Computed example of a mutant assay.
Amino acid sequence: MASRTWVPPGPYDLGRTLCVLARGPGDPAYRVTGDGAIWRASRTPQGPGTLRITAVDGEVHAEAWGPGADWLLETLPSLLGAADDPAAFTPRHRLVHETHRRNPGLRLARTGLVLESLVPSILEQKVTSDEAYRAWRLLLQRHGEPAPGPAPRMHVMPDPRAWSLIPSWEWHRAGVDDKRAATIVRAARVASRLEEAAGMDDARASARLQAVPGIGPWTTAETLQRTNGSADAVTVGDLHLPRIVGYALTGTRGTTDETMLELLSPYEGQRHRACRLILLSGVAPPRRAPRFAPRDFTRI
């Protein structure tokens, strides 16, 4: 086991910063234990590794296990948002200002691991969150490997070759249709090229990811928000986000992507952070329609 301590330069909220990396409450690669520790299981360039992170008395302590331990500790500050600059953000709406004031410790995490965020984002394309979370959980449990160290029943995601070798019936068993499965396989086959996007600016990284058929603006934004800590990668094409942003900022319903982008234009360069704060405010239009029923792909 290796360890490292990082001291944030100001107020810091570990849970708020890293919670976007969890893919549902049963994510095999992300756990929050009763003592408040956050555990992450990742496949790093040096191999699988497990990270345990705690925040105590203004310091963040991390322990790591496995072949990827050194890489995880070396990149720990970036993961925790050290490269993020919250001071670059200026609230332009009362609700955003108040939420920003109440969350001074929010930072934008940067994992530096593209496939780790890209695959679950592909799984979330055009399905309910519950369907996507279930698929991610089953695929990691069946095709990943146990996380190194004393991790509580955690799994590291498959390597690119293992993703490309998952048979069709296993995708169907996890509830993943052929289109999403094929997109993941295509991405896995060029994984080394996609991982380079973690060191690019948003425009170049977006172009690199969208060169893979099946990966569009929605999936790209969801990935770059996590891998690159992008403050401006706003998610377009989402079923809920435009309506939430529109309702929170204007009180109106039925906001489109185009109107959402107009509303967010005062935050150019910081639009994703503005959306994070709007979502944290809890203000959203009342639900009028029932939830979509999960589909059973095992019967197709």
Results as ranks from 00 to 15, higher is better:
A2K: 15
R4F: 01
G10L: 04
Y12Q: 12
Y12S: 09
D13M: 12
L18W: 02
L18R: 05
A29L: 01
R31G: 02
V32R: 14
W39N: 06
W39G: 06
A41K: 04
T44C: 02
T44M: 04
Q46P: 00
G47A: 03
G49S: 06
L51F: 07
I53P: 02
V56A: 12
E59I: 05
E59G: 03
A69V: 08
S78E: 15
L80S: 13
A82P: 08
A82N: 10
A82E: 15
D84F: 09
A87E: 15
A87V: 09
A88M: 08
E98I: 00
K126P: 00
K126N: 14
V127F: 07
R134E: 07
W136T: 06
W136H: 15
L139G: 01
H143W: 10
G149A: 11
M154R: 01
H155Y: 14
V156H: 01
M157P: 03
D159Q: 06
H172M: 10
R173M: 09
A174F: 09
A174S: 10
G175L: 09
A182H: 11
A182L: 13
T183R: 11
S192A: 15
E196H: 09
A198N: 03
A198G: 01
M200F: 10
D201R: 02
A205N: 05
L209Y: 03
Q210L: 00
V212I: 12
I215D: 03
G216L: 06
T219L: 07
T220E: 11
A221F: 08
A221S: 15
L224A: 03
Q225A: 07
R226Q: 10
G237D: 12
D238Q: 10
L239T: 13
L239V: 13
L241Y: 08
P242H: 08
R243P: 02
G251R: 02
T252G: 10
R253P: 00
G254K: 10
T255H: 06
M260D: 01
S265Y: 04
S265C: 03
P266C: 00
R271K: 11
R276L: 15
L279R: 15
G282I: 08
A284Q: 15
A284M: 14
P285N: 11
R287C: 00
R295G: 13
F297W: 15
T298C: 06
T298K: 12
I300G: 14
